[in-house]
Design a protein around this nucleic acid. Sequence first.
DNA 1: CGATGGTTTGAGATATATCAAACCTCGTGG
DNA 2: CCACGAGGTTTGATATATCTCAAACCATCG
Lengths: 232, 232
Amino acid sequence: MSSCDTCLVRNRAICSALDAGEIGALNAIGRTRKLEAGQSLIWEDEDSILVANVVDGVLKLSTGTEGGREQIVGVVYPADFVGRPFGGKTGHSVTALTEATVCVFGRRDFDDFARKHPALEHKLLERTMAELERTRRWMLLLGRKSASEKVATFIAEMSERLVDPTCMALPGVPIDRFELPFSRQQVADVLGLTIETVSRQFTRLKSEGVIDLPSRREIVIRDRDQLIAQAG
Amino acid sequence: MSSCDTCLVRNRAICSALDAGEIGALNAIGRTRKLEAGQSLIWEDEDSILVANVVDGVLKLSTGTEGGREQIVGVVYPADFVGRPFGGKTGHSVTALTEATVCVFGRRDFDDFARKHPALEHKLLERTMAELERTRRWMLLLGRKSASEKVATFIAEMSERLVDPTCMALPGVPIDRFELPFSRQQVADVLGLTIETVSRQFTRLKSEGVIDLPSRREIVIRDRDQLIAQAG
DNA sequence: CGATGGTTTGAGATATATCAAACCTCGTGG
DNA sequence: CCACGAGGTTTGATATATCTCAAACCATCG
């Protein structure tokens, strides 16, 4: 029996393009792997040797300058795909932010399999295009938004993406209370700000009653309209 | 006879995945269109109705805030693909920066054709992944680089991308003199800066002898090593 | 309990934005 | 041919958002 049968993201990941027989073949070349928070799966500038589906947890994609400045260039959730198939180098590292479970494949094995299964490539294409679209929207934030707009946008987006991964929640409905998978430094690295500026914006939003911060890693949205308005 | 036979980018665009017969079929659903500088092909937030291959010229992809701030989220050159196949909205407009020639397809026609031609989808997937990679590298610039680093990086990247589109030049060799397809305002919109800051950085680089500016739209790189060093 | 790592708060420095004016370049029409 | 005007660009003076440096604070864990 294939471990895909019990996979939580079986119906949402690119694997949903495959029938039972094909899934078995894919299962044969992959294996599931657990990562603890902080552990990396792929490193910046290394030759692409593996790709993966995220089964559970949250991971960051990040790059940095020689000077040690870091920028988080993407965040992936269950059912998302990571890595660079079809040769080339990955320009960013992939690191777990929470405990995570991924389904990894050798890059070459995956390449061969994908070329023989156009439906899988099609899913991957749709996913990649959606990710490119999302990334481009984020560029507007990085290039043109103020610190307060950045933080408000960040919280609003988080509440839309951090829905129950088991899909029990209604789709498209954002949640008003969630646990942040980021430290303050990591939030700063997503938004292109410093940790102090992020902290000040959080406390300002709290003092204005827009959000509440029960603990360091928890956020409660008290006034979503106001939050959206401040997102600019 | 198919107009693809004389197409300058026939061997580099996604069409290179197709044989003579398939090209004929693709040609039947597309048409070439000329754009003058400033003319838009696709508008932000409209439902995706057409997609295109760039044959000649340079186009920008851009989004803006309600407040009128603009961010250029991508620049495309001959052989690149633009538009959002497989449904959804395009989150950015596509506008010609120079006179341009594109090969346009109705989005639905293209979708149908692509689904029947996995090799075409494969090329498109590779291209989309490369673009996503490039876009993510640009995020590091937007989020973490100073104005001087941004401008130096911009000039260096331009010199690598604006090679002779006919491919007569040696591949991978950057050029030292080129005409900018951007106004100062547009450079500012690519880098997330103001027009004044861009101007000041240009004149500084010129006064340091790193570049020369024979005219508003021309750039000559005098000291590439120094330029790269300043790109951070 | 004290040590440790992350976070918040404060005071000051600075890069970049903003506002305003002068300056080219180029096309138009007298 | 020259004067004029318009758009884009450069330069200057000032304002301000964000960064930097530094200290206090707070949870967590041995």
